[in-house]
């Protein structure tokens, strides 16, 4: 799952990046309004965490323009502006949620999970596939009731595939959601992760679509 973090304060941004990364999200962090807008218009993000007081362009303006450009990524505003009028303005500009600073990390993560749930029309924080269960809160996976230990990127890949069962995801989409813009990807890294997942879980979980990418078919 890939998140765009927009925050101009180095210290705070670093903290949020750490928290999201440790919760196994791929985080892209930008520090100005124009960069945020560019990221929203061209990137494929599962959620956006948006500060409002930004250099170059105010966060609200970024949001309005992104929505006008038909960018539908769920947005959570994170701001020190705490009056009712300010929160209403943020939500009306197109935000899906609003969190006032200073906030609790657990609450931030919970709200990001809510955005994800809503995006896939679910009400549960557990992704299921046959006898496979992926718990987004505990960051754990069980198969046939037995816990399975997954590496960070394996977990991220599995989460991405299970979020849209039956939908073929391209190699580029999957690589981006694992490594973001900055990570250097070795050409076969994705295949290695898929191989490991098949081995640790069960082989028929992930189907290769030759020349395109991978898909987790809905269980029969």
């Amino acid at each position: 799952m890939r998140i765009l973090l927009v925050e101009d304060d180095e210290l705070l941004g670093g903290g949020i990046e750490d928290a999201l990364t440790r919760a196994r999200y791929a985080v892209e962090w930008v520090r100005s309004g124009p960069l945020a807008l560019a990221g929203l218009e061209h990137g494929d993000f599962d959620a956006v965490v948006l500060d409002l007081g930004l250099p170059g362009m105010d966060g609200l303006e970024v949001l309005r323009r992104a929505r006008a450009a038909r960018c539908n990524a769920p947005v959570l505003i994170l701001s020190a502006r705490d009056t009712v009028a300010q929160r209403v303005a943020g939500l009306d500009a197109g935000a899906d949620d609003y969190l006032v600073k200073p906030f609790d990390v657990d609450e931030l993560l919970a709200r990001v999970r809510v955005l994800q749930r809503r995006a896939r029309g679910a009400t549960s924080n557990v992704l299921e596939h046959g006898s496979l269960r992926l718990d987004l809160v505990a960051l754990s996976v069980t198969c046939k009731g037995q816990p399975v230990v997954l590496q960070r990127r394996e977990f991220m890949l599995l989460q991405k595939l299970l979020a849209t069962p039956g939908q073929v995801l391209t190699r580029a989409q999957l690589e981006e959601s694992l490594y973001g813009w900055n990570g250097s990807v070795e050409s076969n890294a994705l295949d290695v992760h898929v191989h490991n997942l098949r081995k640790k879980l069960y082989p028929e979980l992930i189907r290769t679509v030759r020349g395109v990418g991978y898909v987790a078919d809905p269980p029969a």
Partner: peptide, 17 residues
Amino acid sequence: RTPLAALKIHAQNAARA
């Protein structure tokens, strides 16, 4: 508020590292 928010998040990150 902002530095306190940052402090809090780093403290929580440290606690759950």
